[in-house]
Design a protein around this nucleic acid. Sequence first.
DNA 1: TTGAAAGCGCTAACAA
DNA 2: TTGTTAGCGCTTTCAA
Lengths: 334, 334
Amino acid sequence: MTTIKDIAKVAGVSVTTVSRALNGYSDVNEKTRRKISEIAKELNYSPNTLARGLVMKKTKTIGMLVSGMNRANSKDNFTFEVLSGVNECISERDYDLVLFSTTTTKQREKTYSQLCRERRVDGVILQGMKIDDPYLKEVVESDIPCMLIDIPISSESVGYVTTDSVLGAKRAVDYLIQSGHKKIAFMNGHDQAYVSQQRLKGYRDALREAGIDFREEYVRNGDFLEDKAEEEAAKLLDEHPDITAIFCASDLMALGVMKSAKSSGLAIPGQLSIIGYDNILLAGYASPPLTTIAQDKFDLGYKAANALIDMLEEEGPAKIITLETELIVRESVQ
Amino acid sequence: MTTIKDIAKVAGVSVTTVSRALNGYSDVNEKTRRKISEIAKELNYSPNTLARGLVMKKTKTIGMLVSGMNRANSKDNFTFEVLSGVNECISERDYDLVLFSTTTTKQREKTYSQLCRERRVDGVILQGMKIDDPYLKEVVESDIPCMLIDIPISSESVGYVTTDSVLGAKRAVDYLIQSGHKKIAFMNGHDQAYVSQQRLKGYRDALREAGIDFREEYVRNGDFLEDKAEEEAAKLLDEHPDITAIFCASDLMALGVMKSAKSSGLAIPGQLSIIGYDNILLAGYASPPLTTIAQDKFDLGYKAANALIDMLEEEGPAKIITLETELIVRESVQ
DNA sequence: TTGAAAGCGCTAACAA
DNA sequence: TTGTTAGCGCTTTCAA
């Protein structure tokens, strides 16, 4: 494999000159540069980023830590869309992405900062972490530049991008209220998710503004799981047959709720209106097509990567970015 | 950041001893080893993989080259599932994954082997490449260990994993024939995809065995695109209203064909039977739910990664792996 | 069982 | 404009 040493030998110059020529420094004679470039091409040279990284202490690499990239979770292409966004931005800005995937067993062996420092990533993006994940504490304590997705924790070196879940949830419930509903249940995710707390707040806000009493027993946790939501909805609808609408904190759960409603013979939206959250691909294909609150997942990833690289290159402070949601009206609410 | 030098100083030994101790070599006194391990932990040491990679010429990194990881393509979670499989295997075997994403503009600047050598990846997995992609030639010529997904090219250092598309397609068409169909059209992908050639072969095989004449005009290319397939299906059904069943080379196209059939008022499966290929998530949610040929995409990725690492570690020859398909009967065929 | 020394491929002070 | 030299953090040969 060709090194700058080889090039130097052929060109009859020192390695320093080769290095400078190839890196576009100004203090090198045009003729020498051309000659060096030619030889480099001839010898099919490619720089060794390891060696470069070793001395520069910069690797042009972003680490991405994802939880839930396994067989079971591929139904929800949230992660994939975020990843696509990250990937797009990163390749535009000429970085590379290394994917760390951690299981809980691995977490015991290796700390967050070990993981990052081993690979000498310049910065990190975290997606899909639960709020009580042990890594999260480390993230804030460590000084590795980091952007979180949907987790509102920040410090000198860590920022986050999220969508306005309070507002999004409120938007959903407002829409239900406008459509004439008063008995509105809420299928939430779980308490370890920041967004669940937010969406609950939005739900309550909307009810309060409309003068509707909040009822504890109308709120259930579906763990963001289709099956769990289906179960919970069955119980809920059984106990409170007067409910006319359910707001679900994720589309996947909305799908579960739909199943449950169907199997107890409830017409959607005739007898029960359902509104979801996320606007996953499946939402438009459900029957009836699911009305939902859309988040731009690709953008979530793209903006996170962009902000991170900004931090890295401009050495600016960590950024906090909030994206807007959008109500997608389909046919599951009446 | 702590280095082995720091540890050596504190422990009062040489860096050599530290290196050996930490890497589990046998020729180091147990006492010294324990002492060194303790100090390493205390100092919160993590090894610098760049430095190690530089001298060892192994990085424990697999590169993954994916085409089509962009906003437009996220509908099709084929890529994501493959990626999940790759990721799972790689993390089990303690490698890391670096994601290369290339656009055609970038390809002009950097060759395949440059891309790989720069990052010094030990091996590469390629997914979603077209058969005429310029990188593909390079892959075979270069001696970088590589596994291709769904592209049957091999050499000393490159293998592939694919599903048996001929058999899969045959299985689909056989099922249609068994169900009594004789006028069976085929919505194929495009000529740059290996799998399209294979599936066409399977389609022809099935017809031949059943004594049904192959008709050129029954075969269309939908480019694996929902919209394109919808268009093509409209033309096809208009020109040949006697067609009773369509085999589609991908579920996404099958969805397009369904749309087209619906908008011309054809009942599925009453008047037109449709069978897809892939078993994407959406397939089960379509209405009617789509009968299709399933491939295990996760496994495709997992096996590719596994075979690659086998090659790397056992220095064995490149492997060729063929996975089976499975007929998933739902409600779009009658 | 341990250490000294060389070297992986590169960049960057400093000197010329 | 160019070269000499040192050093990034690690592994490994060789010698003790």
